[in-house]
């Protein structure tokens, strides 16, 4: 159900990863994405999988939670894998002696794509599980700071993101409730033609939008009441600091990164 979506949620425990500077984690995550898409050889994938495993362990977040994060995306992973499997040109790969239209190249590409997606999702889950949305947006705001000199609204962007993330669980719950309430009035969202189904969404979307606007309005009033005037002159409860821990984490990651490059281009 909708309540099972865990992507973007924070898992409030204490671990080495939780205590890292969000900027360190964001930069490592970005480089990790680069590495994932650069990786070509089996060896470099092994290194990346190893790295991801290590991150999962250090985060102290139950492994179960990571798999839950994968669940909603599972269909996409399977779908892209299947597409690659059948649509890639190349040498035929017989299954039990029969040709079923699968190629060797297809199988390799499918495996690579699936691994990449899984690693990406786990990587982003690791980032959001260990970094509170406030810290995350703080990190993004600080990283983008140079852009604010040319008039880019970094603070506003960061604040919008953090509020959006905060309201994800509330809106999921709300959607669930509205769907149930309309079902109780005989609505069905899962039968009929595509046109019929699209039309059936109106009784769900209208109340959802109205409620989102009402919430936005009330939240704006509450924020104003608490003296919010934008980014200027704001201080933070936890000033983010780059410590020796961040340095150690960065060096450690760069070693993995170097490994991937080495295995791909030099080896």
């Amino acid at each position: 159900m909708l309540k099972d979506i865990t992507l973007g949620q924070y898992f409030p425990i204490d671990s080495f990863l939780h205590r890292l500077d969000p900027r360190t984690k964001i930069l490592i995550f970005i480089l990790d994405i680069v590495a994932i898409f650069m990786a070509q050889t089996v060896e470099s994938y092994v290194v990346l999988i190893l790295f991801t495993f290590l991150v999962m362990l250090i985060s102290k977040v139950p492994v179960k939670m990571y798999f839950k994060g994968l669940k909603p995306i599972l269909y996409i992973i399977v779908f892209t894998a299947l597409l690659n499997l059948f649509l890639t040109q190349g040498e035929d790969l017989p299954i039990f002696g029969y040709s079923v239209g699968i190629t060797v190249e297809g199988a390799i590409v499918a495996a690579k794509m699936a691994t990449r997606l899984v690693l990406l999702i786990i990587g982003s889950s690791a980032l959001t599980y260990t970094t509170s949305p406030m810290a995350l947006t703080d990190g993004i705001e600080k990283l983008l700071k140079p852009l604010s000199k040319i008039g880019f609204p970094t603070h506003e962007l960061a604040m919008m993101m953090s509020i959006a993330i905060k309201f994800i669980p509330t809106l999921i719950e709300e959607t669930d409730k509205i769907i149930k309430a309309q079902q109780a009035r005989g609505a069905s969202f899962d039968t009929g033609s595509i046109f019929k189904r699209a039309k059936a969404l109106i009784p769900m979307l209208v109340p959802l939008f109205i409620s989102a606007f009402r919430r936005a309005d009330e939240l704006a009033i509450a924020m104003e009441s608490r003296c919010y005037t934008g980014g200027d002159g704001r201080t933070r409860l936890k000033e983010i600091k780059f410590t020796h821990k961040d340095l150690a984490a960065t060096i450690c990651f760069l070693m993995f990164f170097a490994c991937v490059i080495f295995l791909d281009f030099i080896f």
């Binding site: 924070y10 409030p12 509170s132 949305p133 406030m134 953090s162 509020i163 993330i165 905060k166 509330t170 009402r214 919430r215 009330e218 939240l219 009033i221 509450a222 924020m223 009441s225 608490r226």
Partner: peptide
């Protein structure tokens, strides 16, 4: 100020 709906006046995730 404290308002009626607690969900709509809490800004942060922690």
């Amino acid at each position: 100020m404290v308002f009626q709906n607690p969900d709509n006046q809490i800004v942060a995730n922690v």
